[in-house]
């Protein structure tokens, strides 16, 4: 990888957002503590390096298992190998939470277009009314189709 030009800015611009990171760092420390600019820069640099470290180790774990895609299990193993074993429990909990949220989103029809996403906010009565309306529409369409298909037969009988 190419050397850094500015702190947290590589040639590929693969860096962490400085303002956001500064805000996070300040939230992690007591309010009376000031953080010097060089310390902030070094902390952000350490974070970027941590990501690089975890990703390269995860990639090695992934390769050892003859897999093509880095999976969550590979990251957990990488953390153990790198000596960050005490993080695993909380990281796994975050993963479980993410899985749960993803499942809930898919059950709600998340990402299936705005029209359907409001279903979760509907009351039972509204949902029932909506269902009845849709049934009525479908019935009307079917009846309309049936009439249209029967029409030519009627014409034929008249002709004969």
């Amino acid at each position: 990888m190419e050397p850094m030009d500015i702190v947290g800015k590589s040639k590929e611009d693969a860096s962490l957002p400085k303002a956001t990171m500064t805000k996070i760092i300040k939230e992690m420390l007591p309010p009376d503590v000031r953080v010097a600019r060089d310390a902030q820069d070094l902390l952000i640099e350490c974070c970027v390096e941590f990501i690089n470290l975890v990703s390269s180790e995860s990639n090695e774990v992934c390769n050892r298992e003859d897999k093509r895609t880095i999976a969550p299990e590979h990251v957990l193993k990488a953390l153990q190998v790198l000596g960050f074993g005490e993080y695993i429990e909380e990281v796994y909990a975050a993963y479980e939470q993410h899985k749960l949220e993803t499942m809930q989103d898919s059950l709600r029809g998340g990402g299936g277009g705005g029209k359907w996403n409001n279903g979760a906010e509907m009351t039972e009565e509204e949902a029932l009314a909506e269902q009845q309306r849709m049934f009525a529409e479908a019935r009307a369409r079917m009846n309309g189709g049936a009439i249209a298909s029967k029409q030519p037969d009627a014409d034929q009988s008249l002709d004969s």
Partner: peptide, 23 residues
């Protein structure tokens, strides 16, 4: 990192949490 190939969707979530703990 050129060596890193495909990444599962949940991986950045895990790395993000690990990074938070590290920081």
């Amino acid at each position: 990192d050129e060596d890193v190939g495909k990444i599962a969707l949940a991986v950045p979530v895990l790395v993000s949490k690990a990074l938070e703990l590290f920081l």
